[in-house]
Each structure stands twice: as structure tokens, then as C-alpha cells.
């Protein structure tokens, strides 16, 4: 006899768990902000030091 199928909250059509990875998003946000700040500051320093040709 088949057992009754219960719907899991947050499950998608395939039955996979679909959740919001808040922690991962937080770490990625820090990573992205760091990349932008470090790379941006290096680029500004490059421009401020003048052209080499």
C-alpha cells in the first residue's frame, strides 16, 4: 500500500528543497564589496600616478 505523499513547504516541483542561502549570500556580499574596494583603490592609484608610455 502506497504511503500518502505530503507536500514539503518550500519544495519545488521536482521535490527538491529550495531555500534562501542567507549565510552564503552574506559571505558573497562581503567578497564582492572587498573586490570592488581593493580593485577600485588600485585602479585609482594607477590613474593618480600618471601615464607611462
Amino acid at each position: 500500500m502506497d504511503e500518502p505523499v505530503t507536500e514539503t513547504p518550500g519544495a519545488d516541483a521536482d521535490g527538491g528543497e529550495h531555500f534562501k542561502p542567507t549565510g552564503t549570500l552574506f559571505v558573497l556580499a562581503i567578497f564582492v564589496a572587498t573586490i570592488i574596494l581593493l580593485w577600485g583603490s588600485v585602479y585609482v592609484i594607477l590613474l593618480s600616478r600618471g601615464v607611462t608610455s
Binding site: 580593485w39 585602479y43 594607477l46 590613474l47 601615464v51 607611462t52 608610455s53
Partner: peptide
Amino acid sequence: FLTAVTVAGFAMGFQV
């Protein structure tokens, strides 16, 4: 990144 390097190299004249 590519745009920034291209602007510095070709529009602003930074050369290696």
C-alpha cells in the same frame, strides 16, 4: 575589468 584596462591603455595612454 576589461573596460577599465582598455580605457587606461588605449584612451588614457597607459603603456607597459
